[in-house]
Amino acid sequence: MAAAGPKLDPECAAAIAVLKRAVELDSEFRYQQALVCYQEGIDMLLQVLKGTKDDKKKCNLRKKITDYMDRAENIKQYLDQEKEDGKYHKQIKIEENATGFSYESLFQEYLNETITEVWVEDPYIRNTQQLYNFLRFCEMLIKSPCKVKTIHLLTSLDQDNGRTEQVSALNEIKGSLRNHGVSLQLDYSSSIHDREIRFNNGWIIKIGRGLDYFKRPKGSFSLGYFDYDLRPCRETTVDIFHNKHTKKI
């Protein structure tokens, strides 16, 4: 029987597994996911390097880290160029009961000081939870680096008994935003079906379930009631595009 090779320490084995996945994603042209794995794997290898005393192993690790960093940088430059050319497309699949997908986590990469206007098209900003979701989205914009002056909401009117609550809540949000120097423009449509969020810096985010992709909290004192990163999600897909020629509605 052939002798087994040297056993890798757990940290090194974990880093290699992540980087192997990065290479697989890279070969499948799934560059966004590959970049995330490269960056995570490189960070893990750097931690292994810090704890390595053997000079030969250090040299090998530095070589691997340099090679992976070069590839990650090439991918990053390619993706940056895609963004610049308006060809960028990123897809995020949120699994059932997944956590860590608050509005801040999902949108922060695309928010900057150039944003002054936002369009939200979502037919389901009706019931209490959906209205709170929209309020939370607005709070995120106010707290972000954005300099938002106008938010446009296109939704559908609740045709049931909740119509009065819906209109009242949206008007209350409108008044509250006004206190922060932001105008909320409300429009209603009975034929709206698409769900889309657009920023005037060119980013377009399409969420299969709109803003209402969170499950209801189990109770008023359960984790995730306030912190949306801790709230379980419903399965949905997020598509993110950039188009410098997006027309305003």
Rank of each mutant, 00 (worst) to 15 (best):
L154E: 06
D158Y: 11
V148Y: 01
I173F: 06
L184E: 00
Y78S: 07
I204K: 00
Y78C: 06
A14G: 11
K57I: 00
Y88C: 05
L135Q: 15
M69F: 09
M44F: 07
E121W: 01
W203Q: 06
G86K: 01
P232M: 02
S190D: 13
D229Q: 06
Y225G: 07
K83M: 05
I207C: 02
K87M: 09
K174E: 14
T99H: 04
Q108D: 13
R136D: 11
K7E: 14
I204W: 03
I142W: 15
A169I: 03
E113N: 08
R21G: 03
K149I: 11
R126Y: 12
Q129F: 13
E139P: 15
G86R: 01
I42Q: 02
I142D: 14
A34L: 11
I151C: 15
R30K: 15
G100T: 09
M140H: 15
L106G: 08
K248L: 10
E121K: 05
T99K: 08
T114A: 09
R178I: 11
A15T: 07
E96G: 00
E28M: 09
T128F: 07
K93G: 10
C59Y: 09
R126H: 12
K50Q: 09
L106R: 06
S190V: 12
G181L: 05
E73R: 02
Y31N: 10
Y110A: 03
T99E: 10
R163A: 14
A17G: 13
D194A: 13
I142F: 13
Q47F: 06
Q108F: 14
P232K: 06
S105Y: 03
R163P: 04
D80G: 08
D54T: 07
Q130E: 11
A3R: 15
L177M: 04
S102H: 12
I240T: 04
M44E: 11
I173A: 08
I240S: 04
K149V: 15
Q129P: 05
Y103E: 02
R195V: 03
I204V: 07
T128D: 12
G175Q: 11
K7G: 12
R30W: 08
D67N: 12
Y103T: 04
I142C: 14
Q81K: 11
I142M: 14
E24S: 12
L106Q: 11
Y103K: 09
F199I: 02
V148R: 07
A169V: 04
G100P: 04
I192D: 12
T66A: 10
I65S: 00
S102A: 13
K76R: 08
G208W: 06
Q91Y: 01
Q91A: 08
A14S: 15
R71I: 04
Q39D: 13
E121L: 07
P217R: 00
E196C: 11
D26C: 02
E82L: 09
R195S: 01
A4Q: 10
R198F: 05
F29R: 15
A13D: 09
A169E: 05
D43I: 14
K90S: 02
M1Q: 13
I205S: 05
G175W: 07
D187W: 03
